[in-house]
């Protein structure tokens, strides 16, 4: 705990350490992210409370992926500030990374490893029990193909492996960027079950998807266009 007589230490603690009273899962303040000269995210203000399932909708190029990758600390904000689970987006990113899982439309798999080897490597990286790999692969319906190289998988199978990797952990914040892409209905149901389980356990999820048939479990919906978060709509307007 920083000394009350040392304002610098107090500021430093506030910037990098957990906030004292139930910090929101996500708090962004005027966050802008620029690639070259093109802004992909423009002055985004967002607050996501713990236990919420936030649905982010918007057309291609709206900035949904950039928003999720900034929250995941895969991208740094060019301007603005924010915190995730009480940790600063820049100075507390290692703490954030231990507590979140990003399931993106790139599956982040090694093509020449099998599904099982990919998940075992993920277990090593996160210090998890590799004994969980087989049950998780069964859960996503890939037990039969677990020993085959990912290079020969369809996009749907790859996405299932990525979903299985996300299921290995119980992150406090689940970030899902088009998680239904390439999945059949059964695969989409696996994703929905994971989100519902997170919600039931009081964990937080942010879901970005085009799929209008999915996302009914969301507690709130926000829209994006042109890199901007639009004013929130009520449930009737969303329908």
């Amino acid at each position: 705990m920083a000394s009350l007589t040392d304002p610098d230490a107090l500021v430093a603690e506030r910037r990098s350490g957990p906030e004292e009273i139930a910090p929101p899962a996500v708090r962004l303040s005027a966050v802008t992210r620029v690639f070259g000269v093109a802004p992909a995210l423009v002055r985004a203000d967002l607050r996501v409370e713990r236990g919420e399932v936030l649905l982010v909708r918007g057309p291609n190029g709206a900035g949904k992926s950039t928003l999720l990758r900034v929250i995941a600390t895969a991208l740094s904000p060019t301007y603005g500030s924010g915190s995730v689970l009480g940790f600063d987006l820049v100075t507390g990113r290692e703490e954030i990374r231990r507590r979140i899982e990003l399931l993106g439309h790139r599956t982040r798999l090694y093509e020449d490893l099998t599904a099982k080897e990919n998940l075992r490597f993920a277990c090593t990286m996160y210090g998890l029990d590799p004994g969980e790999v087989d049950p998780v692969l069964r859960r996503v319906g890939l037990a039969g193909a677990a020993g085959e190289r990912v290079r020969g998988y369809s996009q749907g199978m790859r996405q299932r492996v990525a979903v299985a990797r996300a299921l290995l952990r119980t992150p406090e914040l689940l970030l899902l960027d088009e998680p239904y892409a390439g999945l059949d209905e059964a695969g989409k149901d696996v994703v929905d079950v994971a989100i519902l389980a997170a919600r039931a356990e009081g964990r937080t999820a942010v879901l970005a998807t085009h799929d209008r048939t999915r996302g009914s479990m969301a507690t709130r919906t926000v829209f994006m266009d042109g890199g901007r978060l639009l004013p929130e709509l009520g449930a009737a307007e969303v329908r």
Partner: peptide, 17 residues
Amino acid sequence: QAEGEDGAIEGLLLSPI
């Protein structure tokens, strides 16, 4: 190259290692 094929390098970045 293997890290870039399907964004695996981002997985290393986001992992706590």
